[in-house]
Design a protein around this nucleic acid. Structure first.
Lengths: 219, 219
DNA sequence: CCTACCGATCGGTAGG
DNA sequence: CCTACCGATCGGTAGG
């Protein structure tokens, strides 16, 4: 999910300024190149892990020299955080669109869970979607302050699931306690990152069907 | 699960030999100290990850100097493999004991699944059981040849689950396809490594109950 | 298993 | 964003 800035091609030459405009550390946004660093880092972090990825790897993936990623991000650690934050924002946005503007009462709880599960699989397994897997599997590589900031986004994401699971429990379609159900269900989905192979005939739709059949009792 | 050798205290002085007996590279077994390296490495690999753990960290955890782990293991990578192999052997042994010498027909499929789930949780979450979590979360840190060797043990472990899930499907207690069910169920369990906190009142028994209630339909 | 060490690599920076 | 570089650290080893 490239940001709008990333969709622009090389920006036209600035009208009056000579050289590059030097923005403050907090609001650097060179669009294209910054996004290239971010996307390259996400792919490498996912495939090799954060600690095993060097900033030189990342630079090369973005077609830059070894010191250049530090023009866009003040440290390797800040880059990891940016990857995860982008992943969570994208996931939240996609779930909100999927659940629709309509209120929770418009669809059956089972249909709502199906949407949540399907979009979750897409966010995890879709082509180029490395951001959320990095967030899931590199949590321990974050610094404590970063962890705390991201935990708020994670809680927001989980809060989309709780009312749906609660409704299913009331309807008798979910037998386990809601809190543990959510942890177990999301675990089952998250683990798919380890084994899913789109080339092997598996599809997100088939996966979603299987998950629903596994977790839910008849209405 | 310390090996028998690790349960011995400092060995008595050898009767006749002067200095330490120098074994060949392939069969070094100094008991105590080797196991200390292995256990320390497992804990560090689990907490910090393989790439973020230095061989100096491991040496310090075992109370050695920085170069000494290489007396017991020929490389950091070989140490990772040894941790995982020990984890898988212990897990397989525990499951076989739990399923008992009796044949598969002696208990209901649901009771057998319960055993598998409970022992799996214990292997993952029990105190000092860092070996299998390392195996689960550091798979990508292995070299291709190591991965292939371990895959055989993993397949053996999974083969304990398949007949049980098949029987449950036949009985109508499991609705999803057996292959996907196994992947989703093991994923749900494996993910508990990320959130389980024994201090917070959660227990392996409670977790097992919840998992069974979530996955199985009424008989 | 310790001492002493090596070559390579790493995250990060100054200056342009 | 590149050039050129630095100090620190890392996996691993020779020799005892």
């Amino acid at each position: 999910m490239p940001s709008p800035a990333a969709l622009m091609q090389t920006p036209v030459a600035p009208k009056r300024l000579r050289g590059r405009p030097r923005k403050t550390v907090d609001e650097r946004d060179d669009g294209n190149r910054r996004q290239a660093v971010l996307t390259g880092a996400a792919g490498l972090f996912r495939r090799k892990g954060f600690a095993a990825t060097t900033t030189r790897d990342i630079a090369a993936a973005a077609g830059m020299q070894s010191g250049s990623p530090f023009y866009h991000f003040k440290s390797k650690s800040a880059l990891l955080y940016a990857v995860m934050e982008e992943g969570m924002h994208a996931a939240l946005a996609r779930q909100r669109v999927a659940l629709g503007a309509a209120s929770v009462e418009d669809q059956s709880p089972a249909a709502q869970l199906r949407k949540l599960v399907q979009v979750h699989f897409e966010v995890l397994l879709g082509p180029g979607n490395d951001f959320v897997p990095v967030m899931l599997y590199e949590w321990r590589s974050l610094q404590p302050g970063q962890r705390k900031a991201l935990a708020a986004l994670v809680a927001e994401y989980e809060s989309l699931w709780t009312p749906v699971l609660l409704a299913l429990q009331t309807a008798g379609q979910l037998q386990a306690p809601v809190g543990l159900s959510r942890l177990l269900i999301l675990g089952a989905l998250n683990w798919s990152v380890q084994w899913f192979d789109a080339r092997k005939g598996a599809s997100v739709n088939g996966l979603t069907d299987a998950a629903m059949a596994l977790f839910l009792k008849e209405a």
